[in-house]
Structure formats: structure tokens, C-alpha cells
Amino acid sequence: MSTTTTSPTTTAPTPARPRVEVPPIPATRLVAVELRKMFDTRAGAWLLASIGLTAALASAAVVLWAPDEAITFSTFGTALGVPMTVVLPIIAILSVTSEWSQRSGLTTFTLAPRRGRVLLAKGVGVAIVGVLGTLVAFGVGALGNLLGAAVAGVDPVWDLSLAEFLRILLAMNLSVAVGFMLGLVFRSSAAAIVGYFVYSFVLPTLSGLLAAFQEWFRDLQPWVDFNLAATRLYDVSPTGEQWSQLGVTALIWLVVPLAVGTVLTLRSEVK
């Protein structure tokens, strides 16, 4: 049986459509698309709403249960931090993992095959969400502070300096970055979310136990416990040494795995 291509068929060849010069996809467009994809599903919309909802719940709890002298803006700030460090990282995780868990990456990475650019756009997108989400949460907290002061019949206390606020903003975005990193490392929603809870709840407990019972670990702990170093950001004013500890632990627990996860994702097969 003849199975090789020989001559063209008798039909006149149709002229190929001429190539139209297409400009490359700008990075800003990729960021806008990735932001849109974070919130255009029902789950995404609920996560977005939950930024405001959990902030309102945390503020309400402070208004209801905190003693009058504790009705200050920084109390609200501390209360808000807890739900934000859960909701914001989950948005970051799903932004990455849904491409694999929901397999939408097949479309995403054929429309924008330079994956590094897509990952960068996602990273910028979750950072924007981290900053805006924190701002919204603190806006809700400010309303709570006014309301709480009115209920308690005291003057509202605005005891959060800009520097303190910026440090909290940094802490929030570090947890967002951890979520993003875990998304890249696992590329599976369930695994990355479990990973995040291990990171923020299991590891700190183990580290605390180890420090409590093992002499040799006690001095080492501040230099290896990322969570401990990050909580210093909520302190009144971290020392230079504490900043160094934050840098060292972030390098170990965030930067290195982020690099590994990025390389894995760039090389992986999208199925």
C-alpha cells in the first residue's frame, strides 16, 4: 500500500490567509484577566464577599465583647487579622491551583504560553487583592471602632500609627505570598489549602513545643520559625534583629520554595 505523500491533488491550491501582525499580550492585560478570574466563579465571588463579611463579624465581636477600654482601632486591627490571614491566602491558592484542579490551564496556557508571564500576572494580582482586601477590612474596622465607641459612650481611640498599619499590611501580604507559593508547589487546591493550615497552625505549635522542651532549639527558634518572626510585625516596634529573623525565615520558608514551585510549574505538563 502506498502510504507516502507524493504529489499535491488536482484541486487548485487555496491561497493561505496572509499573516496579520499581532501585537504581543501586554502584562497589564494579563493581570486584569487574572484578577477577573479570581472572582468570576461562585466560589470566587463568595471569597471576595467574605473579606467584607468576616471583617464585619470580627468587628462585631470586638464591639460586643471587648471591655470599654479595649475599644481602640488597634484592637479591631488585631481582630481583623485572623480572618484575613485565612481568606486572602485561599484566594491566592485558588488563583494558581484552579488552573490544574479545574483544568482551565489548558486554555490559559495556550492563550498565553509563556507561563512565567502568567504566573507573574497572578502574583501581581494576588498582591493587589492582598493590599485592597486589607484596606477594606480596616475600613470596616474603622466603622466598628466608631460604632463601638458610640455604644460604650467613649471617644473613639485611633491608636494605630501608619508604620504599624504598614507592618500589618506586610504581614497580610506575607501570608498571601505563602498561599501563592503553596499553590505553585502543590498545584492542587486541596493539598495547598491543607499545606497552608499546616504552615500557619501545625508548624508553629510543633516549633513552640520543641522550644519549650529542648534547650538547644530555644535560641534557634526565632531564626527558623517563620510564623513567630511574622507575628513580630504586630508588635509595637520590631527590633533590627527581629527584622533579620523575619528575612532569614522568609528566605527558608517562602523564597526558596517559591523558586522551586515556579520552576516545577514552568516545566510541568499541562493536561
Binding site: 499580550i25 468570576d40 466563579t41 470566587g44 484552579s98 483544568r103 495556550t110 492563550l111 509563556r114
Partner: peptide, 25 residues
């Protein structure tokens, strides 16, 4: 190479798996 196309969607239409979409969109 496909990856070197500046905006591949405008040059190559691709459908590899119709089910590979976010179910919630």
C-alpha cells in the same frame, strides 16, 4: 514554535479538551 507566537489566540485556534474548563464559570 507555538510558545513564541506573541498572541497565539489570534493566530492558532486550539481546542484540546472541551471539558477542561472551570466548572463554576
Amino acid at each position: 514554535r507555538f510558545a513564541d507566537l506573541p498572541n497565539p489566540g489570534r493566530e492558532v485556534g486550539v481546542l484540546l479538551d472541551a471539558s477542561a474548563q472551570h466548572a463554576g464559570r
